[in-house]
Computed example of a mutant assay.
Amino acid sequence: MNKKVTILNDKHQRPPEFSAGSCTVTVYSLQPWWRVDLLAQYQISSVVITNRVDCCSQRIDGAEIRIGNSLENDGNNNPRCAVIKYTSDSSSYNFSCNMIGRYVNVIIPQNGTTLTLCEVEVYGVLGAISLQTDVALGKIATQSSSSYPMFLAPFAIDGNRDSNVYAMSCSYTDYYFKPWWRVDLLIEYQISSVVITNRGDCCPTRIDGAEIRIGNSLENNGNNNPRCAVITDIPAGSSSTFSCDMIGRYVNVVIPKNGAILTLCEVEIYGVPAVTKKINLRVKFHTSEDMIDSTTRHNVFQQFQMVSALKLYWTQEPELEHENKGFSDPSPVHYIQR
C-alpha cells in the first residue's frame, strides 16, 4: 500500500498562501531548487505539489520534479518524473512517477527566478526492490509512419523521459489516418501498468483520446487487441500511469481518429513474464494418410491445431499401431495452456 513518506508542511495541510507561514521560498537565483532526502530508497508512485496562490503563481511554470539516488549537481541530474505546467484552475498538481529513489528535487531550470513551494507530498513504499521492471527497454518498436530519422519509434523506449521532441528521445508519426505506435515484447507478459510521458515543448493535447491496447494479435497492426485505457489528458511534459492487469506480447498506442499526429516521449511497461502450464497429452486417431511422410504429418497436425484453442507441439513423431484395426498411435502432443 502506498503511503505518504514525506511532507513539507508539518501540519499535514495544504495552505497555499505564503502568509500562512507554511511555504518555502528561495532567493532570486540561477536555477533555484529544493530537495528532500528520504533517508532510504523508496518506490515512489506519485508526487503532489501545492503552489502559492496569493502571489506570483506562474513562477512555478516549467519546474521539474527529479527523483533518484545521486547528489551530482545537488541531485538535479537525477531522472525526471515530470514538468510542472502552470494552470490557474488548481493550486495542487498530482504527478505519477513510478520511480525509485532516495532524493526528490524540484528545480526551475532557468536563470534568474524564485522557487516557492507550499507543500510537497511524496507517495510510495519503502524498499527499491520490485519484481516488476520496465519490460519495454531494449525491445522492438515500430509505428504507422516515420518520415524523420530523429523521431523514430524506438526513441519512445530508450529509458529517457525527456519531453522535448528535439532531444531525439521521442517518437513522432506523420499526420496520418489513425496513427499508431507498437512495441513487441517478444514474449507474453502479465502487464500491470503502462506509463506514458507526453511531449512537453508543444502540442500536449494531441495525445487526448489515444488508446492503449494489449494482446497477442497483429490483426490491424495490433490495434484490435483488448483496450487497457483511453488517455483523456496528460499535461505537457508529464507522465501518467495506467493500470492494466492484462496479458500480451504487443502493446499499442493508437489515436482512433482520422488525421492526427502521435507523439510519445516515453512508454514504460511494467510486468512479469506470463506463467504458462505445460501438459503432455496422448492421442489415438484413425487416418488413411501416410504418417511417415513429414509433409503429411505436418498437415495432420495443422488440422488438430485448427480445432484447438491451445498451441500444440509434437514431442515425438506418430507411430503406427500394429493392430488389425489400422489405428495410428501418435506420439504424445505437448500443448501449452495460456
Rank of each mutant, 00 (worst) to 15 (best):
D134G: 07
I107S: 04
G62P: 10
T197I: 09
V125Q: 03
S331D: 15
C265F: 01
I49P: 06
S22K: 15
N76R: 15
H12D: 12
N98C: 06
S147R: 05
R249T: 06
N160H: 04
C265M: 10
T232K: 15
L218A: 02
P154R: 12
Y335P: 01
K4C: 15
V165G: 08
T295M: 13
F301A: 10
E188W: 05
S328P: 00
N164R: 04
P179M: 07
N78R: 04
E219Q: 14
I212S: 06
N225F: 00
S294I: 09
D233Q: 15
E211C: 01
L137F: 09
T315C: 02
V47R: 10
P149D: 10
D290G: 05
T197H: 10
V47D: 00
T50A: 04
V125H: 01
H298E: 11
S57D: 05
Q13I: 12
Q58G: 14
P16G: 01
S294R: 12
W33P: 07
Q58M: 08
D74A: 10
Y250Q: 00
S70R: 09
M306F: 14
A63H: 11
N223P: 03
T232F: 09
T113S: 15
L185I: 09
S239Y: 06
E321Q: 14
I100F: 05
E72L: 10
V254H: 11
F155Y: 14
V230N: 14
V83K: 13
V251N: 04
V195A: 03
R182V: 09
L320D: 04
A40L: 09
Y86E: 01
C202V: 05
D61V: 08
C97S: 04
G21D: 06
S90W: 05
W180C: 11
S92P: 09
R14F: 13
I7D: 15
T241E: 02
Y166T: 14
A167R: 02
F18V: 08
V36W: 15
C97Q: 06
D162L: 01
I108H: 07
L117K: 11
L320G: 01
W33F: 09
V267C: 04
G326Y: 01
T263I: 06
P332H: 14
V253F: 00
E17L: 09
Q110Y: 10
N2K: 11
P318T: 07
S288R: 14
N160R: 11
V122C: 00
D174L: 11
L312H: 03
N280H: 14
S169W: 00
P15K: 14
M168F: 00
I65G: 10
C97I: 01
H322K: 12
F18P: 01
A136H: 12
L137R: 13
N164S: 02
L312E: 07
N111W: 02
L38D: 09
I196P: 03
N73M: 03
Q143N: 11
F327T: 13
M99D: 03
V251G: 03
E64K: 08
A82E: 09
Y250G: 03
N98Q: 10
T296M: 13
G75M: 01
E317K: 14
E188Y: 06
T133S: 12
L185D: 02
N164E: 13
Y42M: 03
V125Y: 05
G215S: 01
N258D: 15
N220T: 14
I60A: 08
L310G: 06
E211T: 07
A229K: 12
E289M: 08
N198D: 02
D54M: 06
S145W: 00
V194H: 05
Q316H: 14
R52E: 06
N73Y: 02
R213S: 13
W314G: 04
G112P: 05
